[in-house]
């Protein structure tokens, strides 16, 4: 409910502290952002998929669907990129084909591949967290371990629960207006008017709901003291340390192997040719 993408389960990844999933992945993300060759993101993505399947017990079909969607997006990017890349960057590489003013150079295509793979890999790297983390656990961990003020954390938690409620509400309001005969066609002006009309009832509902939630929280002594205790203690267990170190080590080995094989490109943000 909180995140449409969350896959319920009780796997190793699910049981990990949410923060350790963040910590494991972050430095790898930075590295992938800097890598320019296509092999690094490919290899890391592969490792990532193995982690998701084996440690996360994500149903392969589900994972495939997500990755396929992602790959499709990247493919579109790949087709567009060589057409919009600055000519002087790739002019010196062989011309693959030309169709009137459209000229596709080999360099453009390769850059496109590399960037698409990187973006694919970065998004894929976020999956071990987003597919296996209950967002309220994440907030709990932030509050308990990283000192996020608890009032802020729990407000965020309540706010997250509002998202699906407001989505449903918006759908109902749209339906209710359509029954009034408000057409859903028309130009920008009509669109704007329509949005304006949705806001009042939507806001009315949101405020009422927020008030109710706030009362229910206050009625159970929320915010009564400077601190509070936690039934579910968030801490780093041995498995968290093992996972973070293990993930770093695996990625390190991959990079090392790539370097040995001479496949690792220079690490830069903007590449010069």
């Amino acid at each position: 409910m909180m995140q449409a993408i969350y896959v319920e389960g009780d796997s190793f990844l699910h049981r990990l502290n949410p923060l350790s999933k963040v910590m494991a992945v972050l430095p790898v993300m930075v590295f992938v952002t800097l890598a320019t060759d296509p092999w690094t993101p490919l290899a890391i993505s592969t490792l990532n998929v193995i982690v998701l399947l084996v440690l996360g017990r994500i149903p392969p079909g589900r994972l495939f669907k997500i990755l396929a969607l992602l790959a499709l997006l990247m493919l579109i990017f790949l087709i567009v990129y060589p057409l919009v890349v600055r000519r002087e960057l790739v002019q010196h590489t062989p011309l693959l084909f030309a169709l009137g003013p459209i000229q596709v150079y080999q360099g453009g295509l390769l850059f496109g591949v590399a960037i698409a793979l990187r973006v694919f890999c970065l998004i894929a790297l976020s999956l071990p967290f987003s597919l296996t983390t209950d967002s309220s656990d994440f907030i709990r961990a932030l509050v308990q371990q990283w000192r996020l003020p608890y009032r802020v954390g729990y407000s965020a938690m309540a706010a997250l629960r509002f998202v699906p409620m407001l989505q449903i509400e918006l759908w109902v309001i749209q339906a209710a207006h359509r029954v009034r005969g408000v057409s859903d066609k028309g130009g920008l002006r009509a669109q704007y008017d329509r949005l304006k009309r949705y806001t009042v009832p939507l806001l009315a509902t949101a405020i009422r709901q927020a008030e109710r939630t706030a009362l229910a929280m206050d009625g159970r002594a929320f915010g009564a003291f400077e601190t509070r205790t936690y039934f579910k203690r968030m801490a780093f267990a041995r498995r968290d340390v093992a996972f973070v170190l293990g993930f770093w080590l695996a990625c390190g080995l991959i990079v090392l192997a790539l370097a040995r094989a001479g496949l690792l490109g220079p690490l830069v943000l903007v590449q010069r040719v």
Partner: peptide
């Protein structure tokens, strides 16, 4: 169910 107890600072 734990929410209120946590606010009252009961020992976990």
């Amino acid at each position: 169910v734990a929410f209120g107890l946590e606010n009252l600072c009961w020992a976990p």
